[in-house]
Nucleic acid binder design. Sequence first.
DNA 1: GGCGATTTATTCAACAATGACGAACAAATG
DNA 2: CATTTGTTCGTCATTGTTGAATAAATCGCC
Lengths: 100, 100
Amino acid sequence: MMVLLALIRLGDEAYGVPVARELRAIRGRDVALGSIYAALERLEGKGLVTSSLGEPTPERGGRARRFFRVTKEGLRQVQATRRALMALWRSLPEHEGGKA
Amino acid sequence: MMVLLALIRLGDEAYGVPVARELRAIRGRDVALGSIYAALERLEGKGLVTSSLGEPTPERGGRARRFFRVTKEGLRQVQATRRALMALWRSLPEHEGGKA
DNA sequence: GGCGATTTATTCAACAATGACGAACAAATG
DNA sequence: CATTTGTTCGTCATTGTTGAATAAATCGCC
Protein backbone atom coordinates (compact mmCIF):
# COMPACT_ATOMS: atom_id res chain seq x y z
CA MET A 1 0.00 0.00 0.00
CA MET A 2 2.60 2.53 1.07
CA VAL A 3 4.88 1.64 -1.81
CA LEU A 4 2.06 2.26 -4.26
CA LEU A 5 1.33 5.62 -2.67
CA ALA A 6 4.99 6.57 -2.76
CA LEU A 7 5.13 5.76 -6.47
CA ILE A 8 2.17 7.99 -7.14
CA ARG A 9 3.72 10.84 -5.19
CA LEU A 10 7.03 10.53 -6.99
CA GLY A 11 5.51 10.61 -10.44
CA ASP A 12 8.18 10.22 -13.10
CA GLU A 13 11.01 10.13 -10.60
CA ALA A 14 9.72 6.87 -9.18
CA TYR A 15 12.46 4.28 -8.87
CA GLY A 16 13.85 2.21 -6.04
CA VAL A 17 15.99 4.66 -4.15
CA PRO A 18 13.58 7.60 -3.87
CA VAL A 19 10.78 5.25 -2.84
CA ALA A 20 12.91 4.03 0.04
CA ARG A 21 13.76 7.61 0.99
CA GLU A 22 10.09 8.60 0.90
CA LEU A 23 8.99 5.77 3.14
CA ARG A 24 11.86 6.27 5.54
CA ALA A 25 10.92 9.92 5.90
CA ILE A 26 7.23 9.36 6.45
CA ARG A 27 7.35 6.29 8.64
CA GLY A 28 10.27 7.52 10.64
CA ARG A 29 12.23 4.32 10.45
CA ASP A 30 14.65 2.68 8.11
CA VAL A 31 13.69 0.31 5.36
CA ALA A 32 16.13 -1.78 3.35
CA LEU A 33 16.23 -1.29 -0.40
CA GLY A 34 15.83 -5.00 -0.87
CA SER A 35 12.40 -4.76 0.74
CA ILE A 36 11.32 -2.10 -1.67
CA TYR A 37 12.43 -4.01 -4.75
CA ALA A 38 10.81 -7.19 -3.50
CA ALA A 39 7.54 -5.35 -3.04
CA LEU A 40 7.79 -3.69 -6.45
CA GLU A 41 8.52 -7.04 -8.04
CA ARG A 42 5.43 -8.56 -6.49
CA LEU A 43 3.25 -5.60 -7.33
CA GLU A 44 4.33 -5.87 -10.95
CA GLY A 45 3.53 -9.58 -10.90
CA LYS A 46 0.00 -8.70 -9.85
CA GLY A 47 -0.30 -6.05 -12.52
CA LEU A 48 -0.56 -3.13 -10.11
CA VAL A 49 2.55 -1.45 -11.46
CA THR A 50 4.62 -1.53 -14.63
CA SER A 51 8.31 -0.85 -15.00
CA SER A 52 10.61 0.45 -17.71
CA LEU A 53 14.33 0.85 -17.87
CA GLY A 54 15.57 4.42 -18.15
CA GLU A 55 18.81 5.75 -19.58
CA PRO A 56 21.98 6.15 -17.58
CA THR A 57 22.54 9.64 -16.20
CA PRO A 58 25.90 11.42 -16.61
CA GLU A 59 26.76 11.35 -12.92
CA ARG A 60 29.24 9.39 -10.95
CA GLY A 61 27.64 6.00 -10.49
CA GLY A 62 24.68 7.08 -12.61
CA ARG A 63 23.69 3.68 -13.87
CA ALA A 64 20.35 3.10 -15.53
CA ARG A 65 17.27 3.30 -13.35
CA ARG A 66 14.20 1.17 -13.43
CA PHE A 67 11.18 3.43 -13.29
CA PHE A 68 7.83 2.30 -11.98
CA ARG A 69 4.35 3.46 -12.73
CA VAL A 70 1.09 2.53 -11.02
CA THR A 71 -1.43 0.97 -13.36
CA LYS A 72 -5.11 1.75 -13.61
CA GLU A 73 -5.87 -1.36 -11.61
CA GLY A 74 -3.25 -0.41 -9.03
CA LEU A 75 -4.85 2.97 -8.53
CA ARG A 76 -8.23 1.33 -8.26
CA GLN A 77 -7.08 -0.94 -5.47
CA VAL A 78 -5.34 1.86 -3.61
CA GLN A 79 -8.53 3.84 -3.64
CA ALA A 80 -10.61 0.87 -2.52
CA THR A 81 -8.34 0.29 0.45
CA ARG A 82 -8.28 3.98 1.21
CA ARG A 83 -12.06 4.06 1.34
CA ALA A 84 -12.21 1.02 3.62
CA LEU A 85 -9.73 2.53 6.05
CA MET A 86 -11.46 5.88 5.96
CA ALA A 87 -14.74 4.22 6.82
CA LEU A 88 -13.16 2.35 9.70
CA TRP A 89 -11.36 5.20 11.36
CA ARG A 90 -14.24 7.62 11.20
CA SER A 91 -14.95 6.71 14.81
CA LEU A 92 -11.33 6.88 15.87
CA PRO A 93 -10.63 9.01 18.97
CA GLU A 94 -7.90 10.79 17.06
CA HIS A 95 -6.06 14.05 17.59
CA GLU A 96 -4.29 12.61 20.57
CA GLY A 97 -1.54 15.12 19.94
CA GLY A 98 -1.43 17.02 23.23
CA LYS A 99 -3.01 14.47 25.50
CA ALA A 100 -2.74 10.79 26.26
CA MET B 1 -4.65 -2.50 11.13
CA MET B 2 -8.24 -3.12 10.13
CA VAL B 3 -8.79 -5.53 12.99
CA LEU B 4 -7.57 -2.91 15.44
CA LEU B 5 -9.90 -0.33 13.95
CA ALA B 6 -12.81 -2.74 14.08
CA LEU B 7 -12.15 -3.37 17.77
CA ILE B 8 -12.19 0.34 18.50
CA ARG B 9 -15.46 0.75 16.62
CA LEU B 10 -17.09 -2.13 18.44
CA GLY B 11 -16.18 -0.89 21.89
CA ASP B 12 -17.34 -3.32 24.55
CA GLU B 13 -19.00 -5.63 22.07
CA ALA B 14 -15.67 -6.50 20.54
CA TYR B 15 -15.20 -10.23 20.15
CA GLY B 16 -14.41 -12.54 17.28
CA VAL B 17 -17.70 -12.81 15.47
CA PRO B 18 -18.65 -9.12 15.28
CA VAL B 19 -15.16 -8.21 14.18
CA ALA B 20 -15.50 -10.60 11.26
CA ARG B 21 -18.90 -9.16 10.42
CA GLU B 22 -17.55 -5.61 10.50
CA LEU B 23 -14.67 -6.35 8.18
CA ARG B 24 -16.83 -8.33 5.82
CA ALA B 25 -19.23 -5.42 5.58
CA ILE B 26 -16.62 -2.75 4.97
CA ARG B 27 -14.29 -4.63 2.69
CA GLY B 28 -17.07 -6.23 0.73
CA ARG B 29 -15.62 -9.70 0.84
CA ASP B 30 -15.67 -12.64 3.17
CA VAL B 31 -13.10 -13.31 5.83
CA ALA B 32 -12.77 -16.56 7.77
CA LEU B 33 -13.11 -16.44 11.51
CA GLY B 34 -9.86 -18.32 11.85
CA SER B 35 -8.08 -15.37 10.25
CA ILE B 36 -9.55 -12.95 12.75
CA TYR B 37 -8.57 -15.01 15.75
CA ALA B 38 -5.08 -15.53 14.41
CA ALA B 39 -4.66 -11.79 14.01
CA LEU B 40 -6.07 -11.08 17.47
CA GLU B 41 -3.73 -13.63 18.96
CA ARG B 42 -0.74 -11.99 17.34
CA LEU B 43 -1.82 -8.51 18.28
CA GLU B 44 -2.14 -9.60 21.88
CA GLY B 45 1.32 -11.12 21.71
CA LYS B 46 2.64 -7.73 20.68
CA GLY B 47 0.75 -5.98 23.45
CA LEU B 48 -1.51 -4.02 21.13
CA VAL B 49 -4.68 -5.58 22.54
CA THR B 50 -5.73 -7.34 25.71
CA SER B 51 -8.41 -9.96 26.10
CA SER B 52 -10.73 -11.09 28.86
CA LEU B 53 -13.22 -13.89 29.02
CA GLY B 54 -16.84 -12.82 29.45
CA GLU B 55 -19.75 -14.68 30.98
CA PRO B 56 -21.99 -17.02 29.02
CA THR B 57 -25.20 -15.42 27.77
CA PRO B 58 -28.59 -17.08 28.28
CA GLU B 59 -29.17 -17.81 24.60
CA ARG B 60 -29.11 -20.96 22.63
CA GLY B 61 -25.45 -21.61 22.02
CA GLY B 62 -24.51 -18.60 24.13
CA ARG B 63 -21.15 -19.77 25.23
CA ALA B 64 -18.65 -17.41 26.84
CA ARG B 65 -17.08 -14.79 24.65
CA ARG B 66 -13.54 -13.52 24.62
CA PHE B 67 -13.61 -9.76 24.54
CA PHE B 68 -10.78 -7.68 23.17
CA ARG B 69 -9.68 -4.19 23.95
CA VAL B 70 -7.06 -2.07 22.22
CA THR B 71 -4.25 -0.96 24.51
CA LYS B 72 -2.73 2.48 24.79
CA GLU B 73 0.18 1.31 22.69
CA GLY B 74 -2.19 -0.23 20.16
CA LEU B 75 -4.02 3.05 19.76
CA ARG B 76 -0.72 4.85 19.44
CA GLN B 77 0.38 2.63 16.59
CA VAL B 78 -2.94 2.88 14.81
CA GLN B 79 -2.69 6.63 14.88
CA ALA B 80 0.91 6.61 13.72
CA THR B 81 -0.01 4.47 10.73
CA ARG B 82 -3.03 6.60 10.06
CA ARG B 83 -0.88 9.71 9.98
CA ALA B 84 1.64 8.08 7.64
CA LEU B 85 -1.07 7.00 5.21
CA MET B 86 -2.78 10.38 5.37
CA ALA B 87 0.51 12.08 4.55
CA LEU B 88 1.11 9.75 1.63
CA TRP B 89 -2.26 10.00 -0.03
CA ARG B 90 -2.50 13.76 0.20
CA SER B 91 -1.34 13.84 -3.39
CA LEU B 92 -3.63 11.06 -4.54
CA PRO B 93 -5.53 11.97 -7.73
CA GLU B 94 -8.81 10.87 -6.30
CA HIS B 95 -12.02 12.70 -5.50
CA GLU B 96 -13.49 11.73 -8.83
CA GLY B 97 -17.15 11.33 -8.07
CA GLY B 98 -17.72 10.08 -4.54
CA LYS B 99 -20.30 7.62 -5.77
CA ALA B 100 -18.12 4.58 -5.02
C1' DG C 1 43.78 6.00 -22.33
C1' DG C 2 43.45 2.29 -19.25
C1' DC C 3 42.38 0.51 -14.60
C1' DG C 4 40.97 0.12 -10.11
C1' DA C 5 38.34 2.71 -6.47
C1' DT C 6 34.01 4.74 -5.70
C1' DT C 7 29.17 5.62 -6.34
C1' DT C 8 24.43 4.70 -7.67
C1' DA C 9 21.35 1.20 -8.51
C1' DT C 10 19.29 -3.37 -8.95
C1' DT C 11 19.04 -8.46 -8.14
C1' DC C 12 19.35 -12.59 -5.24
C1' DA C 13 18.73 -15.91 -1.46
C1' DA C 14 16.91 -16.69 2.78
C1' DC C 15 14.02 -16.23 6.65
C1' DA C 16 10.34 -14.03 9.78
C1' DA C 17 5.80 -12.28 10.16
C1' DT C 18 1.16 -11.93 8.63
C1' DG C 19 -3.00 -13.39 6.11
C1' DA C 20 -6.10 -16.90 5.16
C1' DC C 21 -8.76 -21.09 5.46
C1' DG C 22 -11.13 -25.42 6.92
C1' DA C 23 -11.67 -28.53 10.40
C1' DA C 24 -11.67 -29.66 15.12
C1' DC C 25 -13.04 -28.59 19.59
C1' DA C 26 -15.88 -26.33 23.52
C1' DA C 27 -19.81 -24.89 25.93
C1' DA C 28 -24.18 -23.32 26.11
C1' DT C 29 -29.56 -24.14 25.26
C1' DG C 30 -33.69 -26.66 23.53
C1' DC D 1 -28.15 -35.51 22.04
C1' DA D 2 -28.85 -32.24 18.21
C1' DT D 3 -28.14 -27.49 17.36
C1' DT D 4 -26.15 -23.07 17.88
C1' DT D 5 -22.59 -19.71 19.04
C1' DG D 6 -17.97 -19.17 19.76
C1' DT D 7 -12.98 -20.28 20.02
C1' DT D 8 -8.73 -23.00 19.00
C1' DC D 9 -5.59 -25.62 15.89
C1' DG D 10 -2.77 -27.01 11.96
C1' DT D 11 -1.35 -25.66 7.74
C1' DC D 12 -0.10 -23.24 3.76
C1' DA D 13 0.38 -18.89 0.81
C1' DT D 14 1.68 -14.19 0.70
C1' DT D 15 4.12 -10.32 2.22
C1' DG D 16 7.80 -7.93 4.89
C1' DT D 17 12.53 -7.60 5.77
C1' DT D 18 17.33 -8.00 5.54
C1' DG D 19 22.28 -8.51 4.06
C1' DA D 20 25.13 -9.73 0.49
C1' DA D 21 26.10 -10.10 -4.39
C1' DT D 22 26.06 -8.12 -8.78
C1' DA D 23 25.90 -4.36 -12.46
C1' DA D 24 27.00 -0.25 -14.60
C1' DA D 25 28.45 4.13 -14.57
C1' DT D 26 32.21 8.08 -13.42
C1' DC D 27 36.61 9.77 -11.27
C1' DG D 28 41.49 9.99 -10.21
C1' DC D 29 45.67 9.08 -11.57
C1' DC D 30 49.65 7.33 -13.47
